[in-house]
Design a protein around this nucleic acid. Structure first.
Length: 641
RNA sequence: GCUCACAUAGCUCAGCAGGUAGAGCACUUCCUUGGUAAGGAAGAGGUCAUCGGUUCGAAUCCGAUUGUGAGCACCA
């Protein structure tokens, strides 16, 4: 007798061992059809495996997240089976589930072409049609290794050889294809359904290490039903529409060109956005006690040797040689420059904490494959600052800097921010005591902030641990923006000292912090986040006055002047075009407010307001309308909370 | 940097069994004065990314370089 407890609390009795399928069938026919796997006392299991003892059982169906993951995992196996059938010389490696889909890494001397992808997907659909049973087998580890070696599957053999001896090795067999897998799996390939699609091929390193050989990774997406698949593909299209590279062109914000890979040409509108962000940040920082400075972009290489950058960061640095054969480096970071300012004169502990801030443009020779629009560039502007303080002040200063970051993200419309704490890397300077101290201080800051955070083990800077503030963009990519780093090293290397209260000379602690991180990247994120529909205070062009006929030209100029006097960024469109043409054009370039004026408006001194994306129009008196717009266009710093 | 793909007018793209380029939009001029997402006509605009090779002849085939895209690795 086996008692099966269901999630709703009901208990069903069976005469003997039952499978998940039996349980599902006992409940309803449709459930049996939708069932993919079972959760027995919280553990996912294959649906055809017998349940011998009393247990709580949950049927996992394709419309749950767990079911979807199973589906995608199976899609990866079906992909591998299809590839092995079509290209038997290919070696299989791993094929996990990822967000929205799956991938599988293959080793094969010949690359897969886009045409191959089409063939592979067609074969996958055949395998689904064949509805091959998928069955779990338990093997002895060494036998499994020998089996895969004999089959020429050396990667698989290597993976299995890494499993501790004595641990159970589960293999899954479908048709002629057999693969190592923890499972569980669907009972047969037919359960996968038709809602999947191969998306792309790309290279990927074996075990994620760039020293290893490169494999070929095939990406796919899979869903519970065709409708979800369609919706996903539509979402991709929508995401493409808000791609900052496309909007940057359409809104005339910036461009990049071949001669300056990874360097932005900011157009007037883009630069206005950029300056609006700097203006905001400048005020924010001054209010927080920062002192703005500016340091050279080109400095003698010897300084970078002393700072340790040549050794640690040299591969990423631009060097220039002058006619007198001196070698200079373009600064990849602002910190050494700020230390030079700190070193001028004699500092006292009474001067600390000292906040030096700079909108510093840095140059880093990034790997060509890393470049991406204005999100990942080789020349960028940091809203960088260095807080020189005592060891006792570390926690408090980190808390203050982190609070600043949170406030700023909030003002820009981001409330979901992931915080990562990166602790000591293997290659580092400084004693363990110093690291213990620095990490403890940062952790104390996290506790004081009361934020959720995740650990990024071993990812700290070589001079100290760091907090990273990560935003997620519209296409689901994570971008590291703000960062707070504790540095117990550079001040010493570059000879920065202060006189402590007991008269001794000490090295200050340096906290590196950037709030936006890279202004260029943050602009890109804003563009995608808002899909170009900026809030009024950020919009580079806030208002266009558009005429209906040239009867209204004089009045339109008057409206434009009045708006400009109120500080609004405004243009007028007096062209000999129909109003619908003008509406379309300014909608495409994402102008937030259109003030339409014709003969009626000129006579009554009103404006017809049309908002971007809206259909409705509102006719208001000129002064009233402009006052409201001016109020809306105020910086968040000028708004009453 | 690595793998694969791509590079034709400002933009989106067609042309590719090798015979020196084409569309739509944008731009200029003219007509049109039209009330909320493209009014009409005409015109101008390209050393087909760069360099080299094959060929009587290359946008088209081959190679290299540069750049771009999707990933990987790296990262603000």
């Amino acid at each position: 007798m086996v008692n099966i407890r269901l999630p709703d609390g009901a208990v069903r009795q069976f005469d003997g061992p039952v499978t998940g399928l039996d349980v599902a069938a006992a409940i309803s026919k449709s459930l049996a059809k939708a069932a993919l796997a079972i959760r027995v006392d919280g553990v996912l299991k294959d649906i055809y495996l017998p349940i011998e003892r009393d247990a709580t059982v949950e049927i996992v169906t394709r419309d749950t997240q767990a079911g979807l993951d199973l589906l995608r995992h199976d899609a990866a196996h079906v992909l591998a089976e299809a590839v092995k059938e079509l290209f038997p010389e290919t070696q299989v490696t791993i094929g996990p589930t990822i967000e929205n889909g799956f991938y599988y890494d293959f080793a094969r001397p010949e690359p897969f072409s886009p045409d191959d992808l089409v063939r592979i997907e067609a074969r996958m659909r055949e395998i689904v049609k064949r509805d091959e049973p998928i069955r779990r087998e338990v093997w002895d580890r060494d036998e499994a290794v020998a089996f895969f070696k004999a089959a020429g599957e050396h990667y698989k053999a290597e993976i299995i050889a890494g499993i501790p001896a004595g641990e159970e090795v589960g293999l899954y067999r479908q048709g002629a294809f057999i693969d190592l897998c923890r499972g569980p799996h669907l009972p047969s390939t037919g359960r996968l359904g038709t809602a999947f699609k191969l998306m792309s091929v790309a290279g990927a390193y074996w075990r994620g290490n760039s020293d290893n050989e490169m494999l070929q990774r095939i990406y796919g997406t899979a869903w519970a039903n065709d409708k979800d698949l369609e919706a996903y593909l539509l979402r991709l299209e929508e995401a493409e529409k808000r791609d900052h590279r496309r909007l940057g062109r359409e809104m005339d914000l910036f461009h990049l060109q071949e001669e300056g890979p990874g360097s932005v040409f900011w157009h007037p509108k883009g630069w206005t956005l950029f300056q609006t962000m700097i203006g905001y940040m400048r005020r924010k920082q001054i209010a927080a006690g920062y002192l703005e400075v500016n340091t050279p972009e080109v400095l003698d290489r010897s300084l970078w040797v002393r700072s340790g950058h040549v050794e640690k960061f040299g591969e990423n640095m631009y060097l220039t040689q002058t006619p007198d054969e001196r070698v200079f480096a373009l600064k990849p970071m602002n910190c050494p420059g700020h230390v030079q300012i700190f070193r001028q004169g004699i500092r006292s502990y009474r001067d600390l904490p000292l906040y030096l801030a700079e909108f510093g443009k840095v140059h880093r020779y990034e790997p060509s494959g890393a470049l991406h629009g204005i999100m990942r560039v080789r020349a960028f502007t940091q809203d960088d600052a260095h807080i020189f303080c005592t060891e006792e002040q570390i926690t408090e200063e980190c808390v203050k800097a982190s609070r600043l970051i949170q406030q700023i993200y909030h003002d820009f419309g981001f409330d979901d921010v992931v915080v990562k704490f990166s602790d000591r890397p293997e290659r580092r300077v400084g004693s363990d005591e110093i690291w213990d101290h620095a990490e403890a201080a940062l952790k104390a800051a996290l506790a004081a902030l009361q934020v959720e955070w995740t650990l990024n083990p071993g990812e700290g800077a070589f001079y100290g641990p760091k907090l990273e503030f990560v935003l997620r963009d519209a296409i689901g990519r994570d971008w590291q923006c703000g960062t707070v780093q504790v540095d117990l090293n550079l001040p010493e290397r570059l000879g920065a000292t202060y006189v402590a209260s007991d008269g001794s000379r000490r090295h200050p602690v340096m906290i590196h912090r950037a709030l936006f991180g890279s202004l260029e990247r943050f602009c890109g994120i804003l563009i995608e986040h808002f899909a170009g529909h900026f809030p009024l205070w950020l919009a580079p062009l806030q208002v266009v006055v558009a005429t209906i006929t040239d009867d209204a030209d004089d009045y339109a100029r008057e409206v434009q002047d009045a708006a400009r006097r109120l500080g609004l960024r405004v243009e007028s469109d007096l062209r000999n075009e129909k109003i619908s043409y003008k509406v379309r054009e300014h909608s495409v370039t994402k102008v937030p407010v259109l003030l339409v004026v014709g003969k009626r408006e000129a006579e009554t001194r009103t404006v017809a307001i049309r908002r971007l994306g809206g259909k409705a129009q509102e006719v208001l008196g000129l002064d009233e309308a402009l006052a409201a717009l001016a109020a809306e266009a105020r910086s968040p710093l000028d708004r009453v909370a």
